[in-house]
């Protein structure tokens, strides 16, 4: 991937800002998501809550299923590949996916190496729990970052923890003296140039979304107020009582995330939220996959 292509890929993420990216498993769900105001959809065979329930190895979705979703909507379509599984990523690139999520939600294919994302022309989004992880993924070529959260749980606590950690570490890097940045780069295990960028700009060099456990408009507003530039909603929508209404409400919450009066109104009568699982009840912590 040349520098221009990487810039274009980062810029696509900029166009998604202030928007909601929704997990969908069928063309019908994709159409519901688009009509509800999703700025992109994530095509996958099973939503994280079902992946969690089913257990077993979870892999890239069937390309024909992804193609069906690409044909159904006009908004960008993303799809997940396993961490380190560059052959799955090559297949997704071949079907002209708009964004690849190298995702801890699927079973990792490599427990040491992430994909060298610089070799691809399509953009990648990767999860990160902290600043070091985010910058390592960016160094590998990620054009967008999201918190890892804890997918499929409806529990927002991890996404909150990750974004707060990221904010705190960015604030620390900003506060350092220039001559302290070299040591910081060593501690974060990332190149000096990336640390220097964060030091000067006070933000990541790419767009940062919230993901994992977001189930209500209030969850989305919380993440936006904490500094997320948009949100991914997975199981939260199609595992709830009224997916269409909930999806629309979350879209509006992301646009007017500081207006509590409007949030009260759009949070009303949404039907049942996904039941969810508390963090302590989970046997498998997906966020711990890939560091």
């Amino acid at each position: 991937m040349n520098e221009t292509r990487y810039t274009l890929n980062r810029e696509l993420a900029q166009m998604l800002k202030g928007g909601v990216i929704m997990d969908v498993t069928t063309p019908e769900q994709a159409k519901i998501a688009e009509a509800a105001g999703a700025c992109a959809v994530m095509a996958l065979e099973r939503i994280p809550a079902d992946i969690r329930a089913a257990g077993g190895v979870s892999r890239m979705s069937d390309p024909s299923m992804i193609r069906g979703i690409q044909a159904a909507v006009s908004i960008p379509v993303m799809a997940k590949c396993r961490i380190g599984h560059f052959a799955e990523a090559q297949i997704l690139e071949a079907i002209e996916i708009d964004y690849i999520d190298e995702s801890e939600v699927l079973s990792p294919a490599d427990d040491v190496y992430h994909i060298n994302k610089r070799q691809f022309n399509v953009p990648f989004v990767c999860g990160a729990k902290d600043l070091g992880e985010a910058l390592r993924r960016i160094n590998e070529g990620a054009a967008m970052i999201r918190t890892k959260g804890e997918p499929g749980t409806g529990d927002v606590v991890q996404a909150v923890r990750h974004i707060r950690m990221m904010n705190r570490e960015i604030a620390k890097v900003v506060s350092l003296r220039d001559d302290e940045l070299y040591q910081e780069a060593k501690l974060l295990q990332v190149p000096y140039d990336l640390v220097s960028y964060v030091h000067k700009s006070g933000k990541l060099p790419v767009v940062n979304f919230a993901a994992g456990g977001i189930a209500t408009p209030a969850d989305a507003a919380l993440m936006m107020q904490l500094g997320a530039e948009g949100v991914f909603v997975g199981s939260g929508i199609f595992k709830s009582g009224n997916p269409e209404k909930r999806a629309q409400a979350i879209v509006k919450a992301v646009t007017n995330y500081t207006d509590a009066t409007m949030l009260a109104q759009i949070s009303s009568d949404l039907g049942e939220a996904m039941v969810g699982i508390n963090e302590q009840e989970i046997a498998l912590l997906m966020a711990e996959r890939g560091k």
Binding site: L16, K17, A35, P76, Q248, V251, K252
Partner: peptide, 15 residues
């Protein structure tokens, strides 16, 4: 601005 016109068109009306 740029973004997704489907989203913007919908929110313009609903808001």
């Amino acid at each position: 601005p740029g973004g997704e016109s489907t989203v913007q068109g919908k929110l313009l009306r609903e808001l």
